[in-house]
Amino acid sequence: MNGASDLRFFPSADGDLAYLDTGSGDPVVLLHSGFTDHRVFDAQIPALAAGYRVIAPDVRGHGASANATAPFRWADDLAALLRHLDTGPAVLVGVSMGGAIATDTVLEYPELVRAVVACGAATSDFEYTDPWVRQVLAEQAAALGAGDVEGWLTAFLRYVPGEHRTAADIDPDIPGRLREMALGTLAKHTPDEENHHVPMTDTWARVPGIDVPVLTVNGALDAPDLIAEAERFARTVRDGRSVTIDGTAHYPNLERPEELNKILLDFLGSLRSR
């Protein structure tokens, strides 16, 4: 399901960007987490495509999309894709990095956004202060610098259970799928490759101006500082709310797919009455 043969390609100004486009109706864009690709939403795509047009891109440098050869911003890539498809305003649903892409896009291109759902994310210039997360990030950086792919993967996959669980508490299929996607993305890059991504800064000053509905979804076992920042984001926009999913950490889309799908479908349904 949702394999490479289903992908389409948008010829951007800097290489082809891959995306899945399925279903019909109001557009919903699914934005994946870092080091993965659109397949991280395999449990969401069919559930949403039953009533909506679902667009699930591979972010530049991930999955089947081209690497960057020049400076780029996430929001600009997504806006170009939506305009290429003559689609919008769309509901943007993002997990982790994808949630940050959604918030960047609503700030930069509000005319293209109907609503935002950010799972395990707040604004794109959020930085962790949580000691456990910072230790894992340091382990990832050290492994990557040493060319130790297995060491990097071991650290990366610690986000699945989070600080207060172990791998034994997790369905092994979940880290297995994340590992496969991450290896595919890592294989696209070299250790000395320049990072062309241009981050947005000072986003919080613009957050109160967001006037579309916003929902933040947090795994109860995710990092406390991220949960707090996401809840702050929901409070600061004009029309925001936050929900928590028990028994999961950073990937509710993988650990609690049916619960997340219900939350998403309820939220999407509420937009139709507005």
Score class of each variant (00 low, 15 high):
Arg158Gln: 15
Pro71Phe: 03
Val217Lys: 12
Asn2Glu: 09
Phe72Cys: 01
Thr185Asn: 13
Pro46Arg: 07
Thr36Gln: 12
Asp6Lys: 12
Glu163Ile: 06
Ala121Glu: 08
Gly147Tyr: 00
Gly98Lys: 04
Gln44Ile: 06
Arg60Asp: 02
Ala80Ile: 09
Thr244Tyr: 13
Thr216His: 08
Gly88Phe: 00
Leu17Pro: 02
Leu7Lys: 01
Thr87Asn: 05
Leu215His: 00
Ala100Leu: 14
Leu178Asp: 12
Glu231Val: 09
Leu20Gln: 00
Leu215Trp: 00
Gly240Asp: 10
Lys262Val: 14
Ala80Cys: 05
Thr201Phe: 03
Leu254Trp: 00
Tyr109Arg: 11
Ser5Val: 08
Ile101Tyr: 01
Val116Ile: 04
Val212Gln: 10
Asn261Glu: 03
Gly162Ile: 00
Asp26Ile: 09
Glu139Asn: 13
Leu137Tyr: 12
Thr123Asp: 06
Ala168Val: 07
Ala4Gly: 09
Leu226Ser: 00
Arg238Pro: 13
Gly162His: 06
Ala90Cys: 04
Glu150Met: 06
Val217Asp: 04
Arg158Cys: 13
Glu255Ser: 12
Gly94Arg: 07
Pro27Ile: 14
Val113Lys: 04
Pro172Ser: 04
Leu107Cys: 04
Gly145Val: 04
His62Leu: 06
Leu226Ile: 11
Pro224Asp: 01
Ala66Pro: 02
Leu30Ala: 07
Pro213His: 08
Phe10Gln: 01
Glu258Gly: 03
Ala90Val: 00
Ala80Gly: 06
Asn67Val: 15
His196Tyr: 12
Ala146Leu: 11
His32Glu: 08
Ile227Arg: 12
Ala100Gln: 13
Glu150Lys: 01
Gly63Ser: 02
Val136Arg: 09
Gly51Pro: 09
Ala223Thr: 07
Asp130Leu: 03
Val198Phe: 00
Met1Ser: 14
Leu30Ile: 11
Asp37Ile: 00
Asp266Trp: 09
Ala223Arg: 02
Pro208Ala: 02
Gly162Met: 05
Asp77Arg: 00
Gly25Ser: 07
Ala90His: 01
Pro172Thr: 07
Gly15Lys: 03
Trp152Ile: 10
Thr236Asp: 05
Leu137Trp: 10
Arg73Phe: 06
Arg235Ala: 15
Asp58Lys: 01
Cys119Thr: 15
Phe35Ile: 13
Arg179Glu: 15
Leu17Gln: 01
Lys188Gly: 14
Glu193Lys: 14
Arg73Glu: 12
Phe156Trp: 14
Gly51Glu: 05
His84Glu: 06
Ile227Cys: 06
Val91Trp: 05
Thr201Ser: 15
Asn2Gln: 13
Asp239Ala: 15
Glu163Ala: 14
Trp74His: 15
Ser96Lys: 07
Ala223Pro: 03
Arg206Gly: 10
Phe72Val: 02
Val29Cys: 12
Pro89Lys: 05
Ala66Cys: 11
Ala66Thr: 04
Glu127Gly: 15
Ala49Thr: 10
